[in-house]
């Protein structure tokens, strides 16, 4: 026997409408409310069955929160719910985007060893933030459109977002290196 909340989707679990736009404050609030109910600390003296269920549900609530609060994970999850295949081996993207990525990477490489590395990094971060937020707006309107062609474009946009995600990780590494030197 399974608790039904182990099989519902994350939006249902958090009582949120299925949408790319998520109210962050409401999400966090509900996350805490749910954990208050299901967390293993609430079941230390309970039966084995309840303790096991509590662990499974708390893990699920944590995973749901992680996915719903992160735009990239949320976009991918929404596509999955809508039945749009996410093929990570398919790496075709439009040429303009790839050019833009290469340019950003060149700028990042140039930060190392530059006299004004801190300032350059700061500006680069701003530029990336602006591009990312454009992409998020685009995803938002594509998901609210919801038609099959719009969802295909949302898939491409989510793949672009993944590029920014990796870029962000490398930036963080670079920041570390600069702080250490």
């Amino acid at each position: 026997m399974q608790a039904s909340d182990l099989t519902s989707n994350y939006f249902e679990l958090f009582a949120l409408p299925v949408s790319f736009s998520v109210d962050g404050a409401a999400l966090s609030e509900r996350y805490r409310e749910l954990q208050r109910v299901v967390h293993p600390d609430r079941f230390v003296n309970a039966s084995d069955a309840e303790r096991r269920l509590s662990m499974q549900l708390a893990a699920r609530v944590n995973e749901g929160f992680r996915i719903l609060k992160d735009p990239l994970a949320r976009a991918r999850y929404l596509l999955e719910l809508k039945g749009v295949a996410l093929d990570d081996t398919d790496t075709r993207l439009d040429g303009g985007f790839l050019m833009q990525q290469m340019e950003l990477r060149e700028r990042m490489d140039a930060v190392k060893g530059a006299a004004d590395a801190g300032q350059r990094l700061y500006e680069l971060r701003d530029a990336i933030c602006a591009l990312e937020s454009q992409l998020l707006d685009e995803l938002s309107s594509l998901f609210s459109d919801g038609s099959p062609p719009a969802l295909q474009r949302a898939r491409d946009a989510s793949r672009k977002l993944q590029f920014f995600h990796r870029l962000g990780e490398e930036m963080a590494q670079l920041e570390d290196e600069l702080a250490m030197s």
Binding site: A3, F14, A46, S47, A49, E50, L57
Partner: peptide
Amino acid sequence: NIASDGFAARRMDAGIHAAMAGH
């Protein structure tokens, strides 16, 4: 434990639904 398995699941569901009901 076996006899109370289903009861545990229902209690858990009820708890969650109560917490989210207002929303």
